[in-house]
Nucleic acid binder design. Structure first.
Length: 494
DNA sequence: TGAAATGTTGGGGCG
DNA sequence: ACGCCCCAACATTTC
């Protein structure tokens, strides 16, 4: 709930640095942290430390962000900031406002004459950062930008014709020929700045979800699943490399197994770098090229986002704009709540709500269902995921939704429509994933777990399930919905 | 990183 | 023994 005054005005806090004895006469350098909330393999932090100047570590809750984080990502971010503050040997200065205001305030207050940050790739962010850089340069302040997000710059890898790639496979082949993913940078030693810098506490940013009047704490449910921050990211990567990466190609499509990396939220907030993941995979006793290729998809998504700034809302494939969506708000809400009547879809949507994350195979199934069975615009699904994912990535989320909708670059063709029953039976054969997230179906035999409406009455009785009361009747008939989607697809092409 | 419809093949039952 | 039909099983095409 935003009020008339900013938290900084309401509650002025001064960070008092522990080490006041460092009397360096040199001017400090500011490192502005964004989606790179770590100390290792951080090119901007590293370069700032190399100057030998005292370092002011800064995070800004940007007031003028046109693509603000979703609620679950804010939750994750809150704990990332606290973890980063602990991981850094200097305090993290936390502020709210526009970057121009905040940095424009810190520079005269501290005498800082140099600013470093990691580059961003969304058009509005690029423009704001460029304007800030220009304004600072005009004041004689040095600005250096770095790559803290990606393995390669989106403009670096081009086809023979000099255009950006639009198909993943040749893109990634070229990437592997061209890009030398070097060693991650170590965490640098930082020199303390001996003065004071105004800072909010992380709490004052108000990132945590508001507890409802009835006392429901929505953020609390995410806690068991995640340890946000660099330490949690390293642990997660290590566990993945120790236990799952060897089976990645075989089992990553199985939502009933815990065989994916679950690193997406950490990568999205930059708790760990893609280079650290890449490198650790290759250094591990057993690694997986498939895992590297997933990191490659992340790079490819940023290529698409960089060259297509409207990717969040506009189909990359322009003729897709003519598609006549006919899904309703009620249908969208049933999907959001996990009440479609198709168990694999509902399990996925409830997992997303509870964990702030959804298994990748299930993302394809739930997205296909929203788009092709319910005929709801993919953008509505993108928005919901953006709000619910505790590590929503602007490039990956848009790219993934466009892929399923069939309107993206190198996308799945529109007519590739997932059957929620056969997908469920193939990838969750025992129904364990469904039973975990839809406990009302836990006593249903596996034969009927993905199609409860076809189960004989006595089976439903024995399982204690009354369709329409305990669990919904399917909201659409998949076979009919499929025909309708193909019909609309044909109309669009005509 | 589909699914369904359609086409082909080959073995076995049977007149 | 032979042709015919049936129908899995697999392959190809279509959306």
């Amino acid at each position: 709930m935003r009020q008339d005054t900013t938290p900084l005005e309401r509650n002025r806090v001064r960070v008092r640095y522990a080490d006041m004895s460092t009397h360096s006469s040199s001017k400090p350098v500011i490192v502005w942290f964004r989606r790179d909330l770590r100390t290792t393999d951080h090119a901007a932090l590293h370069a700032a430390a190399e100057t030998g100047k005292p370092v002011i570590a800064l995070f800004i809750r940007e007031a003028d962000h046109s693509y603000p984080m979703g609620a679950a990502s804010d939750w994750f971010l809150h704990y990332c900031l606290k973890a980063l503050d602990e991981a850094l040997s200097v305090p993290l200065v936390v502020r709210e406002g526009t970057s121009q205001e905040v940095i424009g305030d810190i520079i005269p207050a501290t005498g800082a004459d140099e600013v470093h940050w990691g580059r961003r790739y969304q058009k509005d962010a690029i423009e704001r950062d460029a304007a800030l850089k220009e304004a600072l340069n005009a004041q004689g302040i040095t600005v250096e930008t770095h790559n803290t997000l990606l393995l390669s710059e989106p403009w670096e890898i081009k086809t023979g014709g000099g255009t950006p790639y639009r198909v993943f496979t040749p893109y990634f082949r070229k990437f592997r020929e061209q890009v030398d993913v070097g060693e991650p940078l170590p965490a640098p030693n930082l020199k303390h700045y001996a003065g004071n810098v105004e800072s909010l506490t992380v709490e004052e940013l108000g990132l945590l979800p508001i507890i409802t009047p009835s006392g429901h704490d929505w953020g609390k449910k995410l806690e068991p699943y995640w340890t946000p921050g660099p330490e949690g990211a390293r642990e997660r990567l290590q566990e993945f490399l120790d236990k799952a990466v060897g089976y990645y190609a075989e089992y990553r499509d199985r939502p009933d197994y815990d065989r994916t990396s679950r690193l997406s939220p950490f990568l999205a907030h930059g708790c760990i770098s893609a280079r650290e993941c890449w490198h650790a995979n290759n250094a591990a006793e057993v690694g997986s090229d498939k895992f590297l290729s997933e990191l490659g998809w992340r790079e490819f998504s940023y290529v698409l986002l960089y060259h297509n700034p409207e990717m969040k809302t506009q189909p990359l494939n322009p003729q897709s704009k003519a598609f006549q969506w006919e899904g309703t708000q009620e249908q969208l809400e049933a999907w959001q709540r996990g009440m479609t009547g198709y168990p694999i879809v509902d399990a996925g949507m409830r997992q997303l709500w509870d964990m702030g994350w959804q298994h990748n195979r299930v993302r394809m199934i739930t997205a296909s269902f929203l788009i092709k069975d319910l005929l709801v615009e993919w953008q509505k699904g993108e928005e919901w995921f953006w709000d619910c994912l505790c590590g929503g990535d602007p490039a990956n989320n848009s790219q993934g939704w466009q892929w399923v909708a069939g309107c993206g670059a190198d996308a799945s063709p529109f007519f590739r429509i997932f059957n929620p029953i056969s997908q469920g039976e193939r990838y969750d054969p025992q129904g364990e994933y469904v039973k975990r997230w839809c406990p009302e179906l836990k006593d249903l035999p596996k034969k009927w777990i993905h199609r409860p409406w076809e189960a004989p009455d006595h089976v439903l009785d024995d399982a204690g399930v009354t369709l329409g009361t305990d669990y919904p009747v399917p909201m659409v008939d998949h076979a009919k919905a499929r025909d309708r989607a193909l019909e609309l697809y044909k109309e669009m092409r005509a």
